[in-house]
Amino acid sequence: MKKVIAREEHCLNCKLCEVYCRTAHSQSKDVIKAHLRENPVPVSRITVQGDNMLSVAVNCRHCDKPACVEACITGAMQKDPETGVVTCDESRCIGCMTCMTVCGFGVIKSGKFAVKCDLCQGEDMPACVKNCPNNALVYVEVGGAE
């Protein structure tokens, strides 16, 4: 499957990936409205760790055997057998955040429901990759994960 790969040697710590992730997951899909007018402000599914000297954007790895899916007590967290994308079905999620505690990468955010990267399903390319100014994020086929 295609995954978002972070290349820390090119990461600028500008955090525009976070801005555009929030925008892509907002009601308005508008960068200004999403941040200034929506309540609550959408949560970014990707987080830049580190500082200007060394930084890297971390998001869901869409693992072959996702611990979050195994740990989910309601079956809300699922891995699509065809695309390999791990998503949280908000209609079934009860916000217990067990998934967050078992994720080895710390990429599930807490909210009313578990919030995580869905690889911007329906788009050609995830918003974080499309808007990275320095090609520090690439969307490439990495195999496995069926």
Binding site: K15, L16, E18, V19, I32, L36
Partner: peptide, 13 residues
């Protein structure tokens, strides 16, 4: 101020 979303990209860059 109607456009700044306080993302801090300018601060870090």
């Amino acid at each position: 101020p109607n456009k700044c979303i306080s993302c801090g990209a300018c601060v870090r860059q």
